[in-house]
Amino acid sequence: MNIIIGNKLKNLRKAKNMSQEQVADFLNISQSAYARMERGESTSWAIHFNKICEIFEITPEELVKKGIGDSVYESLVNTEQQTEIGVLNVYRKIIRQYELQIEDLKMIIKHLNKGKN
């Protein structure tokens, strides 16, 4: 999930014609810390979740939404060419992706709840 969020951060930043340093300044972190977020090497984006949504003018759902179902299904499943066992294996992969996404969202919620205390 960190890589997906990182790619979104990079695309959002470029769409706003902002530098990594500008975003990092807004988040009150170093440019290198922000660069690690964009590369998917850091989970600290969860700590800055609300400010990230604010700077890029997006909803929290837009930041974490993956669209995993359609993209994974289209890239992995061609039901005309795969056997029933192959299709079941693809569905297992899709389910695993959803399970990972749920775990990532639980971590986000945990970090957000820490900030409320």
Results as ranks from 00 to 15, higher is better:
81 Q>N: 08
76 L>D: 02
85 I>L: 15
87 V>H: 12
72 V>A: 14
89 N>I: 11
58 I>T: 00
54 E>M: 02
90 V>W: 04
59 T>M: 07
73 Y>G: 03
68 I>A: 14
91 Y>S: 12
85 I>D: 15
65 K>H: 11
67 G>I: 05
71 S>C: 02
61 E>W: 12
49 F>K: 01
60 P>L: 01
77 V>R: 04
61 E>M: 13
85 I>E: 15
74 E>M: 05
90 V>I: 08
79 T>W: 10
49 F>M: 01
67 G>K: 03
57 E>P: 01
85 I>N: 12
71 S>I: 09
87 V>A: 10
66 K>Y: 12
63 L>Q: 00
57 E>Y: 02
87 V>F: 14
83 T>W: 09
61 E>D: 14
74 E>A: 07
56 F>R: 00
88 L>S: 15
62 E>D: 02
48 H>S: 02
59 T>V: 03
83 T>P: 08
80 E>W: 07
70 D>V: 12
64 V>Q: 02
74 E>V: 08
81 Q>A: 11
52 I>Y: 01
91 Y>H: 13
68 I>Y: 14
89 N>Y: 13
73 Y>T: 07
53 C>I: 03
75 S>Q: 10
51 K>V: 02
67 G>Q: 08
62 E>H: 01
92 R>S: 14
55 I>S: 00
64 V>A: 04
88 L>N: 15
72 V>S: 11
79 T>D: 09
67 G>Y: 04
72 V>D: 07
79 T>Q: 13
78 N>R: 06
70 D>I: 13
72 V>L: 15
49 F>T: 00
83 T>L: 08
57 E>L: 06
82 Q>T: 06
